[in-house]
Design a protein around this nucleic acid. Sequence first.
DNA 1: TGCAAACTCTTCGTATACGTAATAATATTG
DNA 2: CAATATTATTACGTATACGAAGAGTTTGCA
Lengths: 137, 137
Amino acid sequence: MAQYDDCIIFLLAKAYQKAHGNFKRHLLPHGLTPVQHLILESLWGEEGRSAGEIGKRLVLDNATLSGILDRMTEKGWIVKEPDEEDKRFIRAYLTDMARELKPLLVEKRKLANDEILSGLNLGEKVLLKRLLRDVQG
Amino acid sequence: MAQYDDCIIFLLAKAYQKAHGNFKRHLLPHGLTPVQHLILESLWGEEGRSAGEIGKRLVLDNATLSGILDRMTEKGWIVKEPDEEDKRFIRAYLTDMARELKPLLVEKRKLANDEILSGLNLGEKVLLKRLLRDVQG
DNA sequence: TGCAAACTCTTCGTATACGTAATAATATTG
DNA sequence: CAATATTATTACGTATACGAAGAGTTTGCA
């Protein structure tokens, strides 16, 4: 075993790389990236979130998010509307396409998740998730 | 708990994000990135590896690696030499600077690893590493 | 032996990601 | 009302990632 095989940073990077790549393949036919899917999920949970709220929840940089939301608007996943009461806030709403595709896309995520965890038994899956949450403090 | 909080892809991404960011801060004074550190480690193990060998060991795309090795050459960490017998292979060698800074940089990695895992007890640390290795199959 | 196929690396285009700074538009507050 | 704060966007710089295409080198088979 190489020295970096005992390095948690490396292990996390590679596990993430694999999970991300796998999910990306699943989403490719829909023209959606993993991060964009994450944003859709956030909006499925509650529409009309502002850019700031989305970024805070998903721990995404504000500047990064701006570009992502633009591309999602271009591709017809979301619509951006300034808040009526406080026009500084830009709120994101789902398009019909995004709502209609929800079941399919959720299924894809499930599938990708299951594939990544296929080498673990149920207890291990739960445990891994708990440990990862603990790591984030 | 939001639905993506149960998503292994999201959890991996965020744990990686945190670990990577922390390591990055530690390395910043040295003008080195986490991935570049990883490549140094590979070369500390055995100098003169080809780009392909490095990429295979570290699971780095060939195209990605090309740019990284360039930047490391510019900054004086490594030197690239085509293989004498087969000029398709580009071999990477450490500079004196890279050799001299090894102890310090290894220490930084240890520190960053410990910080990331500070919320876990010994058993959990070992377990998390094992699970992450299993995930990679 | 000569050329096609295989191999290694690089380049290019696109997307993320983060940091900083500057800017614009809007709200709040003293 | 003016100074300040907040939110989002834009711009710039750097780094990673990956697919696809391209350049140079070697190999292997006809």
